[in-house]
Design a protein around this nucleic acid. Structure first.
Length: 298
DNA sequence: AGAAAATCCTGCCGGC
DNA sequence: TGCCGGCAGGATTTTC
């Protein structure tokens, strides 16, 4: 699934349901969805049961739910992960790997389900550490913006929609990279939140070819690319993300609508909305790149 | 150190 | 109907 807009849609949905909820019972149906968990499913269940969920915070494509001042549940959706919130008597969801039975402050019981086809995503409990910069570590408008981040997320750069995202700094770092601009855009250690879809969309809007070396793009053009990327991500958040199939859903199991607004991704053979040329799809780094061969020249 | 490739997985779809 | 190859929105680890 999921890039920043999809993960943000999930975050907001989760926040509206689970903040303050008490974890009553946990079922780990597939322990492969527990990442870096050295104490096994039993350790996960033991630590989390009886805790209450203090918030839902996002940086880039990572989510975490603080339990205490020092520990949080980290959740990453990988390629095909979903988090669904179901009422007590809702039927089973296929491919549910982990489920948490929760009691809301109102007394209502709900179930939070981590569903994942490909098992690239997962959950773990992790230490919270200080970011050191005295700014909120991630996006959490419903609560307190503390500068605490899970150890396993601390290497991820601030995302493009973070108020503390430093565009000037990122541009200067990008200019030193010899790789193609798309590879650079996808480097979560440099700037986070962008994946294959929004990389292609941002490059299309900026009229940049995906393989153009970042080092030869002007600072001004890179700044424009960042501005455009932020615009694309904001629009996609407004539309509830991009859904092509059953893979991506919000916490209520509903699709997003940004796929209607795509100009490049998944549009091979269709006319470019700017110049009418057929959009091309090229194999790239074990996946695909979509671009307009006329508007986006190397 | 930076860059690129390999790796972790399952389900679905289209073609034969 | 069934088998097979190709495909999928990502991050981490390994290799050069």
């Amino acid at each position: 699934m999921p890039e920043l807009p999809e993960v943000e849609t999930v975050r907001a949905g989760l926040a509206s349901h689970v903040i303050g909820a008490l974890v009553k019972e946990i079922k780990v149906h597939d322990s492969r969805s527990l990442k870096r968990n050295f104490s096994g499913p039993d350790g996960f269940i033991k630590e989390l049961t009886g805790e209450s969920l203090q918030g839902v915070i996002r940086r880039g494509k990572f989510l975490w739910l603080p339990l205490t001042a020092t520990r949080a549940v980290v959740c990453h959706l990988g390629m095909s992960g979903q988090v669904l919130v179901r009422s007590k008597d809702f039927g089973e969801d296929k491919l549910t790997r982990i489920s948490l039975r929760l009691e809301k402050p109102t007394g209502e019981e709900i179930e939070m389900r981590f569903v994942d086809q490909r098992l690239f995503g997962g959950m773990q409990i992790d230490d919270l550490v200080d970011t050191g910069d005295n700014s909120p570590a991630g996006y959490f408008p419903e609560g307190e913006g503390r500068s605490l981040i899970p150890t396993s997320v601390s290497h991820i750069a601030r995302d493009l929609l973070d108020p503390n995202f430093d565009a000037g700094l990122v541009v200067s770092k990008m200019r030193k990279r010899n790789s193609g601009i798309k590879r650079v855009l996808l480097d979560q250690n440099l700037l986070s939140g962008i994946g294959n879809i929004y990389a292609d969309e941002s490059l299309w809007r900026s009229r940049l070819h995906y393989d153009r070396p970042a080092i030869e793009i002007s600072a001004r053009k890179l700044r424009e690319l960042i501005d455009v990327s932020q615009e694309v991500l904001r629009e996609a958040v407004e539309r509830g993300g991009t859904s092509f199939d059953e893979q991506y859903k919000n916490v209520n199991g509903e699709s997003g609508y940004f796929s209607q607004d795509l100009n490049a991704y998944s549009r091979a053979g269709l006319p470019c909305q700017r110049c009418g040329s057929a959009i091309k799809r090229q194999a790239w780094a074990n996946r695909s790149s979509y671009f307009c061969p006329r508007c986006q020249r190397r």
